[in-house]
């Protein structure tokens, strides 16, 4: 019985600590104190581009193909093959591209940050930085967040392009129940420019949470290599839950009142 009370209390305490940590990180970036280490932020941005973009685009491309294929066969079965562009416009842009981007960010970038900072923590490298008069929070965490903010909007916009391109390939070039012109007519009819912005906001919210969670678990890792492993696993769980929450709340917030398909009727 006592455990049943203590466990949620532990979760709430941990959540409070993460929020405090996030506030410190965001303050470091917003106050521009992180600019003292802009070189390090650029280096982190370079690492993000080189090591993570292709794998994110690749996964989004595959999801775009699936979305296109299922949409094409479904609309064909219902006698409305011309409307397969709806799937690319809605399913890709609003839901699957942000989710898949979040998954890969959590798996590749989030866990990478936990493992790197965690191993720096247990081998005293973060203490060494602090003793040199350099804030570990600023040099290691804030620079990573700044790098993510600089790079990921572009990475994400390219991801959307990869998803759309994959859906087009599947629907028009592979299956071919609809012409290119017919596909694009419906595709553009079912989206407005603000949708792109909303999708970007969803994805960037996910990215910011993932980087903060990664930094939190890495920066505060303890208990040797096993502790770093545990922290990595915990960060992955929290990130996946966060990605889905942000996805769900974002959809409700941005498109819940859409007159074409109001969520909740």
């Amino acid at each position: 019985m006592e455990d049943l009370i203590l466990t949620p209390r532990g979760w709430i305490e941990a959540f409070g600590e993460i929020v405090r940590f996030a506030a410190r990180m965001l303050r470091e970036v917003a106050s521009l104190r992180v600019m003292r280490f802009f070189g390090e932020a650029l280096r982190q941005a370079g690492i993000l581009i080189v090591s993570s973009t292709l794998v994110i685009w690749g996964l989004v491309f595959i999801i775009g193909l699936e979305c296109g294929i299922e949409g094409a066969y479904f609309t064909y079965g219902e006698g409305t093959p011309a409307y397969s562009g709806v799937f690319a416009a809605w399913c890709d842009l609003r839901e699957l591209v942000p989710l898949v981007f979040g998954y890969m960010m959590a798996a590749k970038v989030g866990t990478g940050i936990v493992a790197e900072l965690g191993s720096m923590r247990i081998s005293d490298e973060i203490d060494a930085l602090e003793v040199m008069g350099i804030s570990g929070m600023r040099f290691l965490c804030a620079t990573r967040l700044l790098a993510a903010l600089m790079v990921l909007p572009f990475v994400y916009l390219c991801s959307i392009a990869a998803g759309f391109f994959a859906s087009y390939l599947a629907v028009v070039q592979q299956i071919g129940y609809v012409s290119s012109g017919g596909f694009f007519l419906i595709f553009w009819q079912f989206q407005n420019p603000p949708d792109l912005l909303y999708s970007l906001i969803k994805a960037m919210a996910m990215a910011i949470v993932i980087v903060i969670v990664g930094c939190y678990y890495g920066y505060n890792a303890s208990g040797g290599p096993v502790g770093v492993g545990t922290a990595t696993a915990k960060s992955m769980v929290l990130n996946l839950v966060s990605v889905h929450l942000i996805g769900m709340l974002g959809t409700q917030l941005f498109w819940g009142a859409n007159p074409r398909a109001p969520i909740g009727g």
Partner: peptide, 23 residues
């Protein structure tokens, strides 16, 4: 305060048990 602490730490050099070199 934090800023003064980081400034004060420049007075110190610390050799950690395993060197704590940046990997």
């Amino acid at each position: 305060p934090d800023d003064e602490l980081f400034e004060m730490r420049k007075k110190f050099g610390l050799l950690f048990q395993d060197g704590a070199l940046f990997g």
